[in-house]
Amino acid sequence: MELAKQKASIGLINPKNPVNVASILRAAGCYGVASVFYTGQRYRLAKEFNADTKAFHKIIPTIGVDNLKDVVPKGAKVVCVELVEGAVPLPHFEHPENAFYILGPEDGSVPSDVLTWCDYVVYIPTYSCMNLAATANVLLYDRLSKSDFVSGDALIRSSRDTNNTTKI
């Protein structure tokens, strides 16, 4: 048993850290994300140093683009995740079935002009800002936890590492 593929994609604004992007790809693979888009040159120049240990970059299209607005998947609602005043706290947010999640750079914010074309802006309540990869993991877990996923031992067996055969 596997989790159903999601109608979800991720857009990254000028990510700088290939380790963070690799961690996002791992999360994307774990939570069934269809594709990852990114803008800017920083990741393009550093992506050979990635740490995607499950090689999800070979499975999930990871595409550099000039403008994320141009690649919003058909029918998707755009959800920006950013610590910005007026945003909805993630625990109160109902994820759209078809979502394009926008995340800003590790060393900056999502530009105001991007916020204008987003359907929703949400934030993750924390005592301090999280890094990019942690934000993506929490976001995608929240999406899954609020969905009608099938749970049980079959899912555990299909999800765990091959070295883990523990039972209780």
Rank of each mutant, 00 (worst) to 15 (best):
L90H: 05
I102L: 05
C118M: 03
K16R: 10
K69L: 04
V110C: 01
L139S: 03
T62Q: 05
L83P: 01
V138M: 09
N67Q: 09
H57E: 01
R160Y: 08
A28S: 13
S112C: 02
N50D: 14
S35Q: 06
E85A: 15
I124L: 01
C129S: 13
S112A: 07
G29P: 00
D153H: 09
E97H: 04
A34R: 13
A51I: 12
Q41L: 09
I168A: 11
R160P: 01
K146R: 06
V81C: 05
L12W: 04
P111Q: 12
P96F: 05
A133Y: 02
N131I: 15
N137H: 05
Y31G: 11
R42P: 00
V19I: 09
V121I: 08
L68H: 04
A34M: 11
P89K: 14
N67T: 10
I168E: 11
S158P: 01
A87I: 11
K5H: 10
H95K: 13
Y123S: 14
G40E: 01
E94H: 14
G104A: 12
S159I: 05
S109V: 09
A134Y: 14
V81A: 10
F100E: 00
I63G: 05
D52E: 12
S128R: 14
A55L: 02
P105A: 06
L68C: 01
D161W: 11
V150N: 02
P18A: 13
K74V: 08
F56K: 15
K54H: 12
G86I: 14
L45M: 06
E48C: 11
A34L: 11
N131K: 05
S158T: 14
